[in-house]
Design a protein around this nucleic acid. Sequence first.
RNA 1: GGCUCGUUCGUCAAGAGGUUAAGACACCGCCCUUUCACGGCGGGUUCACGGGUUCGAAUCCCGUACGAGUCACCA
Length: 488
Amino acid sequence: MKEVRTRFAPSPTGFMHVGNLRTALYEYLIAKSSNGKFVLRIEDTDQERLVEGAVDVIYDTLKQVGIVHDEGPDVGGPYGPYVQSQRKDMYLPYAQELVKNGKAYYCFCTKERLDSLNEGENAFGGYDRHCRDLSQEEADKLLKEGVPYVIRQKMPITGSTTFVDAVYGEITIENSELEDQILIKSDGYPTYNFANVIDDHLMNITHVVRGCEYLTSTPKYNLLYEAFGWELPTYVHLPMIMGKNEDGSVSKLSKRHGSTGFSDLVNDGYLPEAIINYIALLGWCPKDNQEVFTLQGLVEHFSIDGISKSQSIFDYDKLTWLNGEYLRAMTLEQFTQLAMPSYKQVFPQTDLNWDLMSSILQPRVTQLNQIADMIGFFKELPEYSAELFVNKKSKTNLENSVTMLEAAIPVLERLDTWTAEAIHDTLLALPEQLEVKNGTLLWPVRIAAAGMTVTPGGAIEILAILGKDETLRRLNIGLEKLKEANKE
RNA sequence: GGCUCGUUCGUCAAGAGGUUAAGACACCGCCCUUUCACGGCGGGUUCACGGGUUCGAAUCCCGUACGAGUCACCA
């Protein structure tokens, strides 16, 4: 059995769309699940769209998610170079061979003529094959005169072309639908379509994996393989990733739906592992419906027949949930390490009990970038209304809250060892004495300590993190606020 | 518009002629509880529509509708 070889062939645009990343992931998984090779090839044949540093974005992304390529521009390999602009001179001879065999031809049509074909009421819709039947003498003459040219593929006029896709099955396209596409551009560079076929063959790629936007142009590729007498690869076309619009309609995932780039998602506080895990599940389902996977787990479970045919909508809610699962699954130390930049953002100078902080945050955080907002109240007591002390379920009101704080403050003042455990024992002795439920005491304490109704962690943890001095200061502020409110 | 592909809860989806049509996210309710979260339990008109084929269709066939892709010297 031939070794499986797949390739990720991005254009260096400086941006890694999640759709691209998913394609890379599936290519990697297809190769690795059968012990094959995964190749990285940079497709930079469009000289007008070159972006500085764009290739690094590709390396960085793959590195962050743990997808390792066996061959590529940076690591080399037996089929190099792996950058198309460095392979430029390889393509023309193949195109010329096609011309010689009558499968392609020189075209001298100007841009203006081409444009005019698609204008006005006589719009033709495509190329009219004007140069297809130029005699060899004419072509040679124009070539000698230095008239700019492109090389176009000569498509069959009649009949149809059928191919089998591993996901979509048998697909037939009428040859009359196929345009005489350009193989070599007037700047001498090959088009994507042509370079792709040549390189995939030269690099022994066995599985061509790509988005299904290429589905209907696949016959053009196959006609090229046939013209050269090369073996066809296995095609694996992937369904698109879509986004849901406000009005309920669906369109290709783009900025207006949210973050669509890998680095955007990371900035939003998502973990690379969670992003990869989520993306793997968008359009693919394992036999046993498992949902949480490491990259290695995906390699072990992946199979092409689990790829779905229909487009799927990127669901930020589910990604968020999955990210929370990853966050909760890690050790406290790992969590603290990831959270530390946020901790330091809020407390650049001070050190708090970060372990305790992490222990209350870890079950609650779903995106790392929420942390700074969640812990802001530790740094500064928010402005709040005395009304917050009133809570039906805890049976607290403006009057008994005073009693609770007046009971809590002195015992806390006498407490020397300021640990969560000691605070717990001290505070929880009070409700019994006062003959109230725990919540009746703890609600006002927490409100006074935090100045908000919803907090990560309970009163005890919050006091422990705040420290004795700050706790007492805040409880007294709360007490004053209550007395003030009761006066009115 | 031509061509190609697709359509199972709001979303991701299992399902391959006979199932009470899984599971997950989201949502709602209850429990746990020191608020929130975590965790536990429970809930909901889901097979686009219309015809066939069949004893029997989410599954097979044909139409229709809707959605998407594609028709570049972009990839």
